[in-house]
Amino acid sequence: MNTLRYAIPSLLLMAMLPAAFAEDHLVMQKDKAFSAKALSIKTGESVTFRNEDEFFHNIFSLSDPAPFDLGAFGKGQTRKLVFDQPGHYEVECAIHPEMRMTVNVSK
């Protein structure tokens, strides 16, 4: 019952606030590699990085639109980042420099 009642307002919200419900893209970190080499997303969408290795990974970017460093996280853990600045991001793992991918954020 309750679920039904909430479903309508949240559908409305979704139409009104596209950013809040923007698509989330999942990227895995496995065998010291990202599961995608390049990703194209829209401004306001997010990427969730999930560590599927036994050891720690990191996520950072020094790219101009908006540099970030999500720190180190272990097996099974995730880090989610909303890309709210359009542009081209080189995303890397500081621990394993061979791990790199690009995220293209379109307007």
Binding site: D24, M28, A33, S35, A36, E98
Partner: peptide, 20 residues
Amino acid sequence: MKHLRLCMAVVFGLCAGRAG
């Protein structure tokens, strides 16, 4: 509500061997 899109889990095999 949110879609989690799996980014080509298939690519794992390729990525693993890319080091050199």
